[in-house]
């Protein structure tokens, strides 16, 4: 039984997605990366549960290769 939610959990998904993109799309790549890092940290703290966080990190890393 996974701790990380896989099913929809956000009300008004289209509205949320638009808010997210609005926040980043006029940023430089560098600032967008800073934004993502801050958002990750804020949300990670809000979740707090280390098992959920670990599963989320694994899920996000899936399919991405190490860059040598």
């Amino acid at each position: 039984m996974s701790g990380l939610k896989h099913e929809p959990g956000i009300s008004d998904p289209d509205g949320f997605y638009q808010e997210l993109i609005d926040a980043v799309q006029r940023l430089s790549t560098e600032d967008a990366l800073a934004f993502s890092a801050r958002l990750n940290l804020l949300l990670a703290n809000h979740i707090g549960d280390r098992t959920v966080l670990r599963e989320a990190i694994e899920a996000a890393r899936k399919g991405l290769e190490d860059h040598e």
């Binding site: 990366l33 800073a34 890092a37 940290l41 804020l42 703290n45």
Partner: peptide, 23 residues
């Protein structure tokens, strides 16, 4: 460079958010 982005994100958040100070 990416590790530095996260490090700076922690420092930037730490001013306003106590949780980030722990990091």
């Amino acid at each position: 460079p990416v590790s530095e982005v996260y490090r700076n994100a922690v420092l930037d958040l730490a001013r306003d958010f106590p949780f980030a100070r722990a990091l």
